[in-house]
Design a protein around this nucleic acid. Structure first.
Lengths: 209, 209
DNA sequence: GTCTATAAACTGATAGAC
DNA sequence: GTCTATCAGTTTATAGAC
């Protein structure tokens, strides 16, 4: 509960280098092998310490899981809010949603181990861990629901599909890009342009008068 | 290699009731706990037999995995081909893609344990299993690429995004619906209508002259 | 076809030296 | 802070009875 912070230290508690290293390697291993399949010995090996030493930094395997999951979603939330809230007050909802898409993709693709681990293993973790993590997820879903419902009220969003369906479809599709996006096939900015175009206007051509 | 088939049996080899039961329960457990985290004791318990008995039907845990993965994708392939190929010869590519979307969603959502297991654990399985399964995946991807490239050649598909990006985005988005689709919130046919509308025309409104 | 029994190895977590 | 050593439990797979 009470963690000692060295006087004058600018960092928050819980931020030693090895601690961060353990979280990073855990995220990478959870992503590629799953949560239950990843052993603390593997995590310790990758982090350059022995298995027993992990328990100086974390109380249990599940505590590591919790931090990895939270970090994965927090990175995305921060990137989205930063971009959406730096828009001018008279921005259209289309502009705000576009900013949100770019932020979400940036977070997903630039911290792939944390975000992919989150996407891949959330459905496989103990219910206790799920329950705690659900609060953050719900808050993020609410943020997007507000964007979509405001756009709907302004007549910018299609009305023949539920906003919940739109949110789940779009966020799910954006999340999954971390599983196939290949930076070697083009710039991140061009990727964002393509995805935003598809999300906004669909995959078909439309005759314009 | 040579499996005894009772004379007059209409079924192919490898189709005893308990064998099918083991595959079904394995898919359900792989889906919810991951591959490595699922023990053969759990699978056996769920299937109503003892752990040792599994080895009469399967040579190893990885053989079960292979069959679960193949079945998950084969269900979807069959549903897609059936719908696309029953269309009249003069059908538009829009019609064909719509039929493909409906088939893909039907397969995904009506055999959720096999399809969700496939989506969730593919990134977490041993490379040996991945390598064998990749052949079927590639064939299915090619099928969709042909649909999209034909639509592109006919001017029905948008030209400012790569067909590979379109395929990966759309299939990924459709795959993920199995993680959030709720049959209690509306009929399957209405769900297909909403998803197809979003994929074809996007989430925004478009002024039509 | 299914069972019991067991082998050989691995698991999360703890205790205590340094 | 990190180490070694260890506990108690679990794992896949095999052998052989029925």
């Amino acid at each position: 509960m009470t963690t000692k912070i060295p006087p004058g230290a600018a960092t928050s508690d819980a931020e030693s280098a090895t601690r961060e290293r353990v979280l990073l390697e855990a995220a990478r291993l959870f992503r590629h092998h799953g949560y239950a399949a990843t052993t603390l010995r593997e995590v310790a090996d990758a982090a350059g310490i022995k298995a027993g030493s992990i328990y100086y930094h974390f109380a249990s395997k599940e505590e590591i899981l919790g931090e990895v999951l939270d970090k994965g979603i927090q990175i995305v939330i921060d990137a989205v809010r930063q971009r959406v809230e730096s828009l001018p007050a008279d921005a259209t909802w289309r502009d705000r949603i576009a900013a949100g898409i770019e932020g979400h993709l940036w977070g997903m693709l630039h911290h792939g181990d944390f975000t992919s681990a989150n996407v891949r293993i959330y459905g496989q973790i103990p219910t206790s861990a799920k329950k705690r993590h659900r609060v953050v997820r719900r808050a993020y879903a609410d943020y997007w629901d507000r964007l979509f419902e405001s756009a709907l009220a302004r007549g910018e969003l299609r009305q023949d599909a539920g906003t919940a369906v739109i949110r789940l479809f779009v966020i799910g599709a954006l999340n999954w890009t971390v599983e196939w996006y290949d930076p070697k096939r083009g710039s991140f900015q061009d990727f964002v342009r393509q995805i935003t175009a598809i999300v906004f206007d669909g995959i078909l051509t439309h005759d314009k008068a």
